[in-house]
Amino acid sequence: RRPMNAFMVWAKDERKRLAQQNPDLHNAELSKMLGKSWKALTLAEKRPFVEEAERLRVQHMQDHPNYK
């Protein structure tokens, strides 16, 4: 499986939080909310998630050198 990108790293915990706050929302609505929230973040706010995604990408390359 591919490593998570920055959005997916961020959305993993954010989706849980949103789902707890909005138990009646379907996954499609949660995804739309997550997309809008991600776009609203500044580059500085996204940076930790971008860095974690890069760390995961490098780790994935080391763990699976033949993955394409």
Results as ranks from 00 to 15, higher is better:
residue 20 Q to S: 15
residue 63 D to E: 13
residue 46 K to Y: 00
residue 38 W to Q: 01
residue 6 A to I: 01
residue 48 P to E: 05
residue 8 M to G: 14
residue 44 A to Y: 15
residue 68 K to G: 08
residue 31 S to M: 15
residue 20 Q to V: 09
residue 40 A to H: 05
residue 45 E to A: 04
residue 15 R to P: 00
residue 6 A to T: 02
residue 23 P to R: 05
residue 39 K to M: 05
residue 43 L to M: 14
residue 30 L to E: 11
residue 5 N to F: 02
residue 10 W to Q: 03
residue 38 W to M: 09
residue 61 M to P: 09
residue 38 W to F: 04
residue 3 P to F: 12
residue 4 M to H: 08
residue 23 P to F: 08
residue 14 E to I: 02
residue 36 K to E: 10
residue 17 R to Q: 06
residue 40 A to K: 09
residue 59 Q to P: 07
residue 33 M to G: 02
residue 28 A to M: 09
residue 61 M to G: 12
residue 19 A to W: 09
residue 50 V to R: 07
residue 35 G to S: 15
residue 29 E to N: 14
residue 24 D to Q: 12
residue 62 Q to L: 12
residue 52 E to C: 04
residue 66 N to W: 08
residue 21 Q to S: 12
residue 48 P to I: 00
residue 60 H to L: 09
residue 9 V to W: 01
residue 64 H to P: 05
residue 9 V to C: 11
residue 38 W to Y: 01
residue 10 W to A: 01
residue 60 H to T: 15
residue 4 M to E: 11
residue 62 Q to I: 09
residue 45 E to K: 07
residue 58 V to T: 12
residue 33 M to Q: 09
residue 14 E to T: 02
residue 12 K to R: 10
residue 52 E to L: 04
residue 26 H to K: 15
residue 7 F to C: 03
residue 32 K to W: 12
residue 37 S to M: 04
residue 41 L to E: 04
residue 35 G to H: 10
residue 36 K to I: 05
residue 59 Q to F: 06
residue 47 R to A: 14
residue 5 N to C: 07
residue 68 K to R: 00
residue 39 K to S: 09
residue 24 D to N: 10
residue 58 V to Y: 12
residue 17 R to N: 01
residue 7 F to R: 05
residue 23 P to C: 05
residue 12 K to E: 13
residue 65 P to W: 10
residue 25 L to E: 02
residue 14 E to L: 01
residue 32 K to Y: 04
residue 50 V to G: 03
residue 25 L to Q: 01
residue 60 H to I: 09
residue 26 H to G: 14
residue 17 R to M: 07
residue 20 Q to L: 09
residue 30 L to F: 03
residue 12 K to S: 11
residue 19 A to N: 05
residue 14 E to F: 00
residue 59 Q to G: 09
residue 32 K to N: 11
residue 47 R to L: 12
residue 35 G to V: 12
residue 50 V to N: 06
residue 61 M to C: 13
residue 33 M to T: 06
residue 13 D to A: 11
residue 58 V to L: 15
residue 36 K to F: 15
residue 18 L to Q: 00
residue 27 N to I: 04
residue 38 W to S: 02
residue 28 A to I: 12
residue 49 F to R: 02
residue 46 K to N: 00
residue 54 E to F: 04
residue 62 Q to R: 09
residue 21 Q to E: 13
residue 23 P to I: 01
residue 56 L to P: 01
residue 62 Q to P: 12
residue 56 L to K: 04
residue 64 H to R: 14
residue 21 Q to C: 10
residue 59 Q to D: 11
residue 13 D to K: 02
residue 54 E to Y: 07
residue 36 K to C: 03
residue 45 E to S: 03
residue 19 A to M: 13
residue 33 M to R: 11
residue 13 D to I: 11
residue 63 D to P: 08
residue 18 L to V: 07
residue 20 Q to E: 10
residue 13 D to Y: 06
residue 50 V to A: 10
residue 11 A to F: 02
residue 50 V to S: 08
residue 45 E to Y: 00
residue 9 V to A: 06
residue 29 E to S: 04
residue 33 M to F: 03
residue 23 P to D: 00
residue 59 Q to I: 14
residue 54 E to I: 07
residue 44 A to F: 07
residue 63 D to C: 02
residue 67 Y to T: 15
residue 52 E to K: 11
residue 37 S to R: 13
residue 58 V to D: 11
residue 56 L to A: 06
residue 55 R to L: 09
residue 53 A to V: 03
residue 37 S to P: 00
